[in-house]
């Protein structure tokens, strides 16, 4: 582009790796908040810092001595922004809920293109990621629908409930009691053998959703375009009533139209959406996340 200064290789890599680190650190703190805060409490006074920065402090031993990078990584959580986040987390969530209330219809129905466009903007701005109702002209049949509960998926041949869950998940009655689906997901096993399973495979199954890929517009006539598009595609799920949000992946196709539901969530997804008990279904927004570098971690997103 004329007049536009091209970034150096250093600048491109630096930006990418800083963003990745910021997101990983936020996810780390979010997933293990209680344990991190506990350790912060018991450290000697001089080591104490604000709870939200515990994640950074726990990684402090790896921060470099160089002033330039120390300044850069401090920019990832600027003190002023952090202070604002500390005092106004409820406000941010409430602001989102207020915006969604005016942007969404009262009943759970397919949204118009204008409504979807507006939600692209609201969700991208709120969560700091590229949230889209379509990517390169490819999309699902809808973006606002009723989600129902799915079972755990077999990650590899021989995966059972005994091998499937972490110790804290076993202790979670809702996550444990969901059981395992008898068949594989739409993309087969996540890995060929248990010993080859990576953390990525674990996270994908944990945070999977099932969507009605077969109802995508022109699905049968555009199979070559859709091939590969849906498999493990990241999607942001938002509960518009209570504000929970999760970064998920498409791990299966379904549910059938006759069920009256429009998508399904793994036990972990349902639990973290606040739909883990009672009727175990509810209206949710589900939008694609455009993340070609695969830097956005899966799991709950905190506001």
């Amino acid at each position: 582009m004329p007049g536009k200064r091209q970034k150096s290789q250093y600048q491109v890599l630096r930006k990418k790796w800083l963003v990745r680190h910021k997101q990983a650190k936020a996810a780390l703190h979010q997933k293990h908040k209680e344990a991190l805060e506990f350790v912060s409490d018991i450290l000697p006074d001089k080591e104490k810092i604000a709870p939200a920065a515990v994640g950074l402090a726990m990684l402090a031993s790896s921060l470099p001595a160089s002033n330039a990078l120390a300044a850069a990584t401090n920019q990832v959580i600027r003190p002023k922004e952090e202070a604002v986040a500390e005092i106004a987390p409820i406000d941010k969530k409430q602001a989102l809920l207020d915006e969604l209330k005016s942007a969404l219809p009262q009943q759970v129905r397919p949204l118009t293109v204008d409504e979807e466009g507006k939600l692209d903007e609201i969700l991208s701005r709120t969560f700091g990621m590229e949230v889209r109702h379509e990517i390169n002209g490819l999309r699902l049949n809808r973006t606002y629908g009723v989600i129902g509960a799915e079972q755990h998926l077999m990650r590899y041949p021989g995966d059972t409930m005994a091998t499937h869950l972490s110790p804290s998940e076993v202790a979670n009655k809702m996550i444990y009691s969901s059981g395992m689906a008898p068949g594989r997901g739409a993309w087969g096993y996540f890995t060929r053998a248990g010993q080859n399973m990576t953390q990525k495979d674990v996270e994908r199954e944990r945070w999977y959703i099932a969507v009605q890929t077969f109802l995508a517009p022109e699905y049968n006539t555009r199979l070559s375009d859709y091939r590969g598009f849906f498999k493990f595609r990241k999607m942001l799920l938002v509960n518009p009533k209570a504000g929970q949000a999760i970064v998920t992946v498409i791990g299966d196709a379904g549910p059938a139209e006759w069920t009256g539901k429009h998508l399904g969530g793994s036990p972990e997804v349902m639990y973290h959406l606040g739909l883990g008990s009672g009727s175990r279904k509810g209206g949710v927004l589900y939008f694609f996340i455009d993340d070609p570098s695969d830097t956005i971690p899966l799991g709950p997103v905190k506001l």
Binding site: R20, H32, L59, P64, P167, Q199
Partner: peptide, 30 residues
Amino acid sequence: TTVSGSEKEELMDLAHINLHAAIIDTILFH
């Protein structure tokens, strides 16, 4: 690549930080 010596050191520091976060996350998960 075209990165200078000091830029390379900074990027390596970032790489180590990214690695550290991922490893701690893996451990805590289990």
